[in-house]
Design a binder for these strands. Structure first.
Lengths: 348, 348
DNA sequence: TTGAAAGCGTTACCAA
DNA sequence: TTGGTAACGCTTTCAA
C-alpha cells in the first residue's frame, strides 16, 4: 500500500478544531465550575444543581460555545455522521438518490458525507477507507468498491448498506426490481409488433444494467427471438447520440431498449437529427423516468430513486443503533410508464 | 440558546473511532518501534532509517492500518473536509451545483459534507454551527443562514464562500449574473410584440429570483410598461401547474417569465391541460436550462451550475490555505437560450 | 535516528 | 451534587 499520507489535503495553517476556538474549558472557567459539570449540563447525563446549570447555560450562551464534534467523536467512539459513496454524481438518478438519503439521514440527526469515486482515482479503495474513518456507517452504490473491501470493513464492525449492487458478504442491500420490469417492458414492445430488438447499454458497468439486459434477453428468448446488444461505455445523452450513428451503420432495428433515460433521450435526438422518426421508424425506451422523460414523451420504467436513498438511510441507521437482526435485502418495485416512443397506441 | 445536545444523534453502542480498530499503537508494537516513528513514516515528516521504514510499512500493510482522520484532525487542528449548505436539495439546479462542488473539492483532497436546511428545522443555525465544527470551510447557498451567523463564523476564522447569495460581512461570493440577463430576456419578449408580461416566482425566497425580477421589471419600466407579479411559494413543477389556474383567473397575459425552468415547465403543462397553447396563446420562459428544458423546447437562460459549485470550491480552498487577499465577488455569465416557448420566430 | 510525553476537546468513571 | 482525571488516536516538540 502506498504512503497513506498521499491523500491528505495540502497543509493548511493550523486553526483550532472548533470554529469558535471556545472550548469546554473556557466555559468551565467562565462559569466557575469544572469541565465535567459543563459536560453534564450539556448532555443532561447526570443531575446538576439548578443554580449551577443556569450559570453554565449562561456561559455557554455568552461564549457562543458549540461543542466540537471532533472531541465528542473521539471520546464517544462515534461520529454522528454517515457516508454515501457514488460511482459518479452526474445525472438525475444519482441526484435523486442522494436527495432521499440526505433527507432521511438528516432527519435521524446525522451529518452526511458524500464521496464520488468517479474515474478520477485509480484507487477508490483508499478514498473509501479514509471515508470509513469519518463515519458510523456507509452506503455504497453500484460498482464503487470491491467485494473484498466491503467484507473487510463490514467484518471490522462498520455498518454498510449496498444500494443498487448485488449482495456481498453479510451486508444489507436495497435495490429496485429490474429483471421482471425489463421483461414486461420487452413484452410490451413485442405486443407492438416489434421483432428486431436491440439493447443499448453496458452491462459491465452497472449491476442494474446487467439485470435489465437479462430480463430483456430472457423475454426475447421466450419469444424465440435473438437479442442484439449495442454496448456503449456510458450513460449520457452524448453516448445515446453517438449510438444513433452506430445503429444506422449496423442496420436499424424495430426497437431499442436503453439502459437509462439519458441514453434513450440522446438516441432519440440523434435519430431525429439524421431524419429517422421515433416511434415511426424505430421505437425507443428508457429507464428511470427522469423529469425530461415526461417532456420528451419517453416510454420508460419508473424506479423510486428518492425512496432508494431514504430506505438505505433507514436500514443503515438501524444497524448503527446496534440492530443485530438478519441481513436484509430489500427490492423496491418499479412501474412501466408507457408514453409515445414505444410505438403508436390505439386511442381508447 | 437551547440545549446544544438536542441535535446529537441517538445513542449508539460505542465502537472504536477507527473502523479497523487498529491504532497507531498496534502498528508501533507490531513493528517494534514507537508511535512517533510510525507517525513519521506515514507522514514523511522527518528522516527515518530505511530498515525501520520498511518494517513499519510492512506492519501497516499487515494490519491494514488506516490512520483515523479524527485523531489527525484533533492533533492538527484541521479536518481536511469542507461543507456545503443548501436550502433544499431537490431539483436539477442544486444537483448540478453539488456535482461541480464535490468534483472540485475531491480533486483538492478534501472530504465533502452536505447539509440541507430544508424546512425541517426551525433552527438551521444550530445545524450549520454543528457542521462548522466538522469542516475547515463552508459554502453557503441562498437564504440558508442569517448574516449574523455568517459574520460571526467568519470572524472566528472559518473560511466561508457565499453562493448565489448577496454579500455579507467580509466574505467571498460567487453567483451567476441575473439582472442583465433578465433584462435581455424581457427585451426579447418585447421584440416578439408581447406587451402584457407577468413574472412567476417568489422574490422573497431567493436572492436570484429577486434579481431576475429586478431586471424584468426594469426592462418593462424602460418600455413604459407595468410588470405584473404572480407570487408562488415554491420552485416546483407543481407550483407552475397551479399557477396556470391562477393566470386564467386573473386574466391571461401575453407572456410569463418564470423564476426557474421547473416552474415554467409546470406552467406550460398546466396551460396545455386547460387548452391554452404555448406560445400561441401565451409565451413562457424559464431559467437555468435544465435537461428537460431542451426536450420541452423551453426558452430560458442558461447559467453555469456546475461551474458555480466548482468555483466556490476553488475559492474556499484558497482561503483555507491561508490566502489573506482581498475579498472576491465572482459573477459568472449566463446565456440566453431561445427555443420555442417565447413565440414564433421567422425562419431564417 | 529514535522515544517519551504533552497536547488537541470531549466524555465518563471514581472519589469526594 | 461536584471535581479530578484517564481515556480516545493522532501529531509534534524536546531529549537522548
Amino acid at each position: 500500500m502506498a504512503d497513506v499520507s498521499d491523500r491528505v489535503a495540502e497543509p493548511a495553517p493550523a486553526r483550532p478544531a472548533t470554529p469558535s476556538g471556545v472550548t469546554i474549558r473556557d466555559v468551565a472557567a467562565h462559569a466557575g465550575v469544572s469541565i465535567a459539570t459543563v459536560s453534564r449540563v450539556l448532555r443532561g447525563t447526570a443531575p446538576v444543581a439548578d443554580a449551577t446549570r443556569d450559570r453554565v447555560m449562561a456561559s455557554v450562551a455568552d461564549l457562543r460555545f458549540t461543542p466540537s464534534p471532533l472531541g465528542r467523536a473521539l471520546a464517544e467512539g462515534r461520529h454522528a455522521a454517515n457516508g454515501i459513496v457514488f460511482p459518479d454524481l452526474s445525472g438525475p438518478y444519482y441526484a435523486d438518490v442522494l436527495l432521499g438519503y440526505e433527507e432521511e439521514a438528516g432527519e435521524l440527526g446525522r451529518s452526511v458525507l458524500i464521496l464520488s469515486t468517479h474515474g478520477r482515482d485509480a484507487a477508490p479503495e483508499i478514498m473509501v477507507r479514509e471515508l470509513a474513518g469519518r463515519v458510523d456507517g456507509l452506503v455504497l452504490l453500484g460498482r464503487t468498491v470491491s467485494d473484498d473491501v466491503i467484507t473487510e470493513l463490514s467484518e471490522r464492525g462498520l455498518p454498510i448498506v449496498l444500494l443498487a449492487r448485488p449482495a456481498a458478504g453479510a451486508v444489507d442491500s436495497v435495490k429496485a426490481e429490474n429483471v421482471e420490469s425489463a421483461r414486461a417492458l420487452t413484452a410490451h414492445l413485442l405486443e407492438h409488433g416489434h421483432r428486431d430488438l436491440a439493447f443499448l447499454g453496458d452491462a459491465d458497468r452497472s449491476p442494474d444494467t446487467l439485470e435489465r439486459w437479462s430480463g430483456f434477453s430472457a423475454a426475447l428468448a421466450a419469444a424465440g427471438l435473438t437479442p442484439a446488444a449495442v454496448v456503449r461505455g456510458g450513460f449520457s445523452e452524448e453516448e445515446g447520440r453517438r449510438a444513433a450513428h452506430e445503429l444506422i451503420r449496423i442496420g436499424l432495428p424495430d426497437a431499442v431498449v436503453c439502459a437509462n433515460d439519458e441514453l434513450a433521450l440522446g438516441l432519440v435526438a440523434g435519430l431525429h437529427a439524421i431524419g429517422v422518426t421515433v416511434p415511426g421508424d424505430v421505437a425507443v425506451t428508457g429507464w428511470d423516468d427522469v423529469m425530461a422523460a415526461r417532456y420528451a414523451g419517453l416510454t420508460t420504467v419508473r424506479q423510486p430513486m428518492r425512496e432508494l436513498g431514504a430506505q438505505a438511510a433507514r436500514m443503515l441507521d438501524l444497524r448503527i443503533r446496534g440492530d443485530g437482526g438478519q441481513v436484509r435485502h430489500e427490492v423496491l418495485t418499479t412501474e412501466l410508464v408507457v408514453r409515445d416512443t414505444c410505438g403508436r397506441h390505439e386511442p381508447t
